[in-house]
């Protein structure tokens, strides 16, 4: 048995399809992206000009490219996610976790938007935000708040917020589900013991449940932050970075560099920075949570 299961050739054959896919599409391209980022290249011609780290210098300093602005926007989205979306998700998870009637129905409906394509949700919210006929402005006019109506996606000041709301709407359910699974895994004896000692619901949540689900909160925070850094679909559909770049994020900027300006080196530079930032933030958040223990 051991000899049969230790056969090197079998091991290789079983691993091969996965290894090819994984290395070919995920691992090798990381190296290739870094390599391209060292060149000025229009993607078509055979000759690329080696420029060293010039793209990196340009991306951080050039106002014309506006990477820092894009990064700031995505970090702002990350902050909104962590401090608005996650608390809401946590509140829902804690409430559903203590046996309310219709728990399954609430849970299933809250999670539903996660399954709908972001393009569909974006298209739907385009209609909701439509300045003339969208239900948001129609509603505001109907209740006499005419002066609150805005061109929500077309105004610099409101666009980023208007992009965030559908994102929140779509992903609260996702974080809620993860946190709910955590709340449900708290051993009943822990709760009961605390209740016997006279703890209120709030105290049980604060001193028993929250510490218990901390690893899941960490995962949620990491997903919320890296998800914001990578955000693309919703913004592409709603504003494509505009107006005046007020909703530009690194991903939309990357696509602009690649396919509008034909700057493949610069596009790759942004891709590399995104990979690094995602890993970096995941590490930082993990470290922050560890430090707290």
């Amino acid at each position: 048995m051991n000899r049969m299961y230790g056969n090197k050739l079998h091991i290789l054959i079983f691993l091969l399809p996965a290894l090819l896919l994984f290395c070919g599409i995920l691992i090798a391209p990381i190296g290739a992206s870094f390599y391209y980022s060292l060149f000025e290249w229009n993607g078509m011609s055979a000759d690329k000009t080696f420029v060293g780290l010039a793209n990196y210098k340009e991306v951080f300093t050039s106002i014309d490219i506006g990477f820092m602005k894009a990064l700031r926007n995505s970090l702002l989205l990350a902050l909104l996610s962590v401090f608005l979306q996650l608390p809401l998700a946590l509140l829902l998870a804690l409430t559903l976790g203590k046996k309310v009637k219709g728990e399954r129905v609430f849970l299933s409906v809250y999670f539903m938007p996660v399954l709908i394509s972001t393009v569909v949700i974006g298209q739907l919210w385009l209609k909701i935000y439509n300045p003339e006929y969208g239900i948001l402005n129609v509603f505001l006019r109907a209740i006499g708040l005419e002066k609150w109506t805005r061109i929500w996606l077309g105004t610099k000041e409101t666009a980023l917020g208007a992009v965030f709301v559908p994102t929140l709407w779509q992903y609260v359910g996702y974080h809620m589900l993860l946190l709910y699974a955590g709340v449900k895994s708290v051993p009943g004896e822990l709760r009961e013991a605390a209740m016997l000692d006279g703890a209120t619901d709030g105290q049980v949540n604060r001193f028993i449940v929250l510490p218990y689900i901390k690893p899941i909160i960490r995962i949620s925070v990491i997903f919320a932050v890296t998800g914001s850094l990578k955000s693309f679909d919703m913004i592409y559909v709603l504003t494509n970075g505009g107006p005046l770049r007020s909703t530009q994020v690194p991903s939309t900027l990357m696509i602009e560099m690649l396919f509008l300006r034909n700057r493949y080196g610069m596009g790759s530079t942004i891709a590399v920075l995104l990979i690094v930032l995602c890993f970096l933030f995941a590490l930082i958040i993990s470290a922050l949570f560890k430090q707290e223990d």
Binding site: G6, A18, F22, I25, P29, A32, G267, A271, I275, F279
Partner: peptide, 30 residues
């Protein structure tokens, strides 16, 4: 199957959970 570095190989595959699709876009497109 039984071999020495299978744990390391498993961890290697799990890297894919963190790698964003941006990593591949230019090289795969080209």
């Amino acid at each position: 199957l039984i071999w020495k570095r299978r744990k390391a190989m498993n961890k290697f595959f799990m890297l894919g959970l963190t790698i964003p699709i941006h990593a591949s876009i230019v090289p795969v497109y080209v």
